[in-house]
């Protein structure tokens, strides 16, 4: 994960993304559940990470350009 751009797809409350953030260049978390994303944003603020962003969205239509990430994580998602 070191120096990589990471997408945590189906990130839920963001605990995995927050765990990865100290190592990665940038981490994006995406989940269809707005409540989970609100919790993730709050947790990210507490963690004080600037390279971490969360958004509500569906995996079938990812709001990112082609080749935006080095690593995609599906943790308990599929």
């Amino acid at each position: 994960m070191r120096g990589k751009r990471v997408l945590d797809l189906g990130c839920g409350d963001g605990r995995f993304a927050i765990g990865v953030a100290p190592f990665a260049t940038a981490v994006e978390g995406l989940d269809p559940d707005p409540d989970a994303i609100a919790a993730a944003k709050q947790a990210a603020r507490k963690a004080g990470r600037r390279n971490l962003h969360f958004a509500v969205g569906a995996a079938q239509r990812l709001p990112y350009p082609d080749g935006a990430f080095d690593v995609v994580i599906l943790s308990w998602t599929l």
């Binding site: 350009p65 599906l74 308990w76 599929l78």
Partner: peptide
């Protein structure tokens, strides 16, 4: 699910890594 995985492929760089972890 197949569509989602195709999207994952689209947003990955060439030779990018997909990590799939889930209960077995």
């Amino acid at each position: 699910m197949v569509d989602a995985l195709r999207e994952v492929h689209r947003v990955l760089v060439p030779c990018g890594i997909l990590i799939d972890a889930r209960p077995d």
